[in-house]
Structures are given as structure tokens and as C-alpha cells.
Design a protein around this nucleic acid. Structure first.
Length: 120
RNA sequence: AAAGCAAAUUGGGUAAUUACUCUAAAUCAUUUCGGUGAGUUGGAGAGGAAAGUCCGGACAUUUACCCCGCCUCGGCGGGGAAGGGUAAUGGGUAACACCCAUACGGAGUAAUCCGCGAGGUGCGAGCAGAGACGCUUUUGCUAGCGAUAGCAAAGGCAUCCUGAGCAAUCAGGGUGAAUCUUUGAUAUAAGCUUGAGGCAUGCCGAAGUCGAAAGAUGGGGCCUGCCCUGAGUAAAGUCGAAGGGUGAAACGGCUAAAUCCUUAUCUGAAUGCAAGGUCGUGUCCCAAUGCAAAUUGGGAAGUGCCGCUUGAGGUUUUGAGCAAUCAAGAUCCCAGAUAAAUUAUUACCAAGGAAUUUUUCCAAACAGAAUCCGGCUUAUAGAUUUGCUUUGAUA
RNA sequence: GCGCCUAUAGCUCAGUCGGUAGAGCAGUUGCCUUUUAAGCAAACGGUCCCAAGUUCGAGUCUUGGUGGGCGCA
């Protein structure tokens, strides 16, 4: 789990990132990124009820994404806000988290990625 | 041993490293001395349904109708009506539509399971029509395979008398009542009572019944028994060959409102912790006062804290009770988040399946607290225990 | 989290007190017109969301489920 300073905790910040941030598409995931004034990376995850009606499934998807970010927290460049929106159909057979790393590296948010983080 | 029924328990465990939430302790930094921040160590961290939101409470805020009483005169207290629920009998409970016991009805060989169950009314609320439901039987004739239909005559219920029969009962006569409709009188919450009078029970038609079908019937549905004489048998109030009476409507039996009416009984109502509070905090807007600075009041969108977890609590002992449950004692503290924690990885053990022969592989249900409790309902892989029933075998 | 509404023909909706389900539009066929549109007429089209119960009989009443939608700081 991420420490408190690495989370987006206010509804207004969520709105700002979602409206003004750059969008990245990574399969069924949508990443919204926006530069902030703080010197740390902040993460927010949005999983709607249309992803799955069961709360267990939604919570599991959130945990998987959080775990990936907490492992690669040192490699991501600071002072960025990221919101991950999970769309329907993601994670039906395993959780493809290495794609997420490549996607972040492509736009220069990650310095050196490690390709061995495909968690079952 | 097989099949079945009921009840209860469990919903993997241990260890290591790691992340997060809450909490306790001391340390450091800062401070407006209230706190705030940082890392360290210890403790705790999802369910039997956390779900559906179908009932019932606790808790919080607001408040309507009528009457009575009190006073500080706009509040308090009490009662009622309306509305809403419930419905065998009794008990339990804070309360319930829940639970327990007993009786009754139904299903099953049985263990056992199921039952929203008071009383009344009594069923096309279709069509036409001013008006539509109290209705059927016996005898004779005609038609039809039949259910039945048409025409004519005579009837029905209660009670009394006369006659017939061993009897149940039947026949004749007298008296009285009832059903339906209309009008009038009287009375009324619906209604009921008394008097008088009269019959278009038409067309279509669901279930059921009859029929091979066509069709007929169909004004809730279903049921067929009961009584007398009595050969006989060891015996007969009880079993019973055979015969007879009655069996139609019914004021015969059972059943039918989960939509109507009545009765009994319970209950103020509405909104739901996003209730609501805050002698918290800044921002924006409006109004008043003011030369201005500013102050006061109101509103808007944010945000912090309280509400928030010690409770109709858990475990256990004793007692009361058939039981549900209750009482007393001992002991324990057991999630409290807010873009929302409860994670990830590894090893071993236990248990399941498949291959195979001592190892390998696979899979592991339903499902995630959000104010808190008591129930109900729905979803649920597997494992364990206890009691009981039936059938078969052996002793 | 708390509290509500709704499901009927291809589409939009009626259906009161249980008696066997309709309206408009669309589609089909015919008439009218030189032809199309408009208009007129006819027929077609329904698991009344699913399951159980009450009832002689359920779209309607009762209970449970499924889908869709809405409000509240």
C-alpha cells in the first residue's frame, strides 16, 4: 500500500487531473497525467461499478495496480499526478502489469523499467 | 450396510519477510503551549451471510387534526380520532410479519416437513334491460346414444293433527315463516323491522360435469353418505349376504376475500448517521450599520472534528422453564476506514481431485464492514459431529 | 451508505373493482393517383421480465428473484 503522501486524497484534485491531464491508453486502462507543484508522485485509481458489480473483483483490481506502483515508486519521476481509470474487460485473464510499465516508459515517466513484474 | 430426515460446528492452520489503517509508549524537531510532523517499538485489524433492504427496534431532527388540564402565554402533559399493521391458543422479547410449545388440517411407510389460519357475506364487478339470481324436485307425454331439454300438473322449510308402515319414513290437511322486487310508513352510522304486491330467471359464457366427437349443461367449488329390517356367525349396539327407505334444493357436510364489511388487539407521524451537532476554520456573494477600516446577520460551495463504536456485547458456571428465553455470579475488550486500510511473496502441515506408484501436477465456494443491534430472505465448494427413521443381513 | 420508481406488440404508452389485453406510430397487403407522399380499408404482430402462492379464474393480489432508472451531502 502506498504511503499517504503518494495518494490523491481530494475530490477536487481528482477532477483537475481527469479534466486537464494528458491521456495515455494502455489496453483497457486509461492513464491521466498532470504535472503538480509537489515533489512526489501521487496516484489515484478509479474503478466504476460497470467494471464489475461485485465489490470483491473491483477491490482486487485496485490492489494489483497499487502493488505495481508501490514496487516501482523509486523509478517514477517526481511531481506528477496520475489517475488510472479501469475499463470493463481488463484483467479477465491475469493482470498484464508489464504493459503498464512499458506505457509509462514510452512517455518518459519511468527511467529504467524492470520487465519482470508480471504478477499473477 | 444402504437410503433418508433433522440439528449443530467449521468456512484452512503455522512460521518468516513486507506494505497500509487504528491504537499505546517513549524519543527527536517545531510551536501561538492547544497541538502538529518524523521515524522506532508493542498490540489489534471482514462475514455466515458483511449481500437483498423485506420487517422490527435503538438513536437524531422536524412537526399536523380534535378535546381536556397546567402555567412563566407559547410551550408542557394527558386522552381521542384518522391512518397503518397483526390475526388458532398460550408463552418469549426492547420490538416484530421473528422464535418456542400445544391443538387442528395436509404430504410422507416413518423420522419429519408444510400451513398470512378471527367472524360475516358468498362470487362472470360481461351485454341488453326500469329491474337479473331465492330454484329446484316428483309424475306423465315428446325429443335425444347420453348428459339433458321442452310442455302440462303437483310440490318444497318449521310445527301440529289424521292415516299408512315393525321401523327409517311416506301421504293428506291446518297454521306459521323465509327468499326477490317495488312502493309507503317509521327509524338509522351501515342497516333493520312491519305491511302490501308481483314474477322477462333473456343473450353470451370460464372452471367443473356428461359425451368418441359435435354438442349439452354450467350463477363458487368439492363430497356421498345416512337410516331401517336382517339370513348368518361362538357372540352382536359394533361384523354381515340380501332387501327396503331417504339421499332435490336445503335452514346436508367440507371448503372458498391475499378485493369487501365487521370484531379483537397493537401503534402518534414524517425523515434517515448523506439523520444531526460544532463557544471549528478560512474563501466568495447578499443585506444592515459605518466617512472608512471593520462589525453583525443570512446564504453558497469546500474542509476538519464530534456522532463512531462498551454493546438488548462475547465466553463460561449455576439456577428457573417442556422449550424459546430469563435471572445471578465470574471473566474478557474483540475493525472503525473516508478516492475509503485489512496486502504481496515464500516454506511446511492438514484435507480434495487426476495421473502414477511414492512422487508430480491441478484446483480451492459464496463473497468485502461504512450508525448500531434483533429477525427474515437469497448465494454458498468442501469438511466434521450428534440424534432419529425405514429397509435388508447377522447374532 | 440511506431511500424510492419501473418492466405490457418492432418503438412510445393505456389497462380503475381479478373475468381472459388495447391505442398511436412503424412494417405488410389492397384501394385511390400517371407515380410517390398524404388519405381510406384490412389483416398480421404478445412467454404481459422470471418463479412460487392465493383463487373456479392473475397483466392486476401476496412473497421471493432478475434487469433498467432516479433522488439525498
Amino acid at each position: 500500500m502506498l504511503p499517504q503522501r503518494n495518494r490523491i486524497r481530494k475530490n477536487a484534485d481528482f477532477g483537475l487531473v481527469c479534466r486537464q491531464g494528458r491521456a495515455l491508453f494502455c489496453g483497457k486502462l486509461i492513464l491521466k497525467t498532470r504535472r503538480s507543484d509537489l515533489d512526489v508522485v501521487r496516484l489515484g485509481i478509479s474503478v466504476g461499478i460497470s467494471y464489475s458489480p461485485k465489490a470483491v473483483v473491483r477491490n482486487r483490481a485496485k490492489r494489483q495496480i497499487r502493488e505495481f506502483f508501490s514496487k516501482n515508486l523509486q523509478k517514477i519521476q517526481p511531481s506528477w499526478d496520475v489517475v488510472v481509470i479501469v475499463q470493463k474487460g481488463w484483467g479477465e485473464s491475469g493482470y498484464p502489469l508489464s504493459e503498464l510499465g512499458e506505457c509509462l516508459a514510452k512517455c518518459g515517466l519511468i527511467k529504467n523499467i524492470s520487465p519482470t513484474t508480471n504478477i499473477k
